[in-house]
């Protein structure tokens, strides 16, 4: 044995980049669940609401229904996947005990949060990007503020990645973890104007 005692040069950012790489590899290894499934789900929504039912729904606020629903579906993909990436990865790590492998390393809390957040953002934006590419088959989007739209998607991704981390930290079991999805994400999707303009909701929901 050449000697176990003699560490190499310490690179302060390597713990962070390694954790980020690990988190990206994690969702990439199960891409059929983490990327393909949400893309197929969103494509079905596009097909049903954009191409089929959409033609029978009246034009909303100057756009056809497909044009209306596509940005919502993109953002839904971004939000759902940013949340799911953080919550499932961290919760599984806690559940199976792998988290202790990280807790004993020099990875600092800010590095930990940043790595999980960036990986979640990457997954969320990848899903959003693919949904947008598929949506071009159904409708042309009139881009008036593309940078603002991208910024909004990124900010939503950061926000829901943090919610995912919080959910994973506080969830005691799989049931409580799914409560965050059922009571936080689903109401936001169905009451947040993904499928219809919130102006048509009854009070007080239209002003929330």
């Amino acid at each position: 044995m050449s000697g176990s005692n003699g560490q190499g040069v310490y690179k302060p950012w390597l713990p962070f980049t390694t954790l980020l790489r690990k988190e990206v590899l994690r969702f990439w290894r199960v891409a059929s669940q983490t990327l393909l499934t949400p893309i197929i789900t969103a494509s079905l929504y596009l097909f049903v609401f954009g191409a089929t039912l959409g033609e029978r729904i009246s034009v909303l606020e100057g756009f056809n229904y497909a044009q209306f629903v596509i940005p919502g579906l993109i953002l839904m993909g971004v939000i759902n996947n940013s949340f799911a990436n953080c919550s499932s990865s961290l919760f599984m790590s806690r559940y199976l005990g792998g988290i202790v492998d990280l807790l004993v390393t020099p990875v600092s809390p800010p590095q930990f949060i940043l790595a999980y957040t960036l990986a979640a953002m990457l997954r969320g934006t990848l899903v959003g990007l693919v949904i947008w590419m598929i949506s071009t088959l159904f409708a042309d989007l009139p881009w008036t503020s593309p940078l603002l739209a991208i910024l909004m998607a990124l900010l939503a991704s950061v926000l829901f990645a943090q919610f995912g981390l919080i959910a994973a930290i506080f969830a005691k079991n799989f049931d409580t973890l799914s409560m965050y999805t059922n009571f936080l994400l689903l109401p936001l999707i169905y009451l947040g104007g993904v499928f219809y303009p919130i102006s048509i909701l009854p009070a007080p929901w239209n002003s929330l």
């Binding site: 040069v9 310490y10 690179k11």
Partner: peptide, 13 residues
């Protein structure tokens, strides 16, 4: 990956 968490490059040897 585990070597990286400790801030040292993976030493293949």
């Amino acid at each position: 990956l585990h070597a990286g968490y400790y801030g040292v490059e993976d030493d293949p040897l």
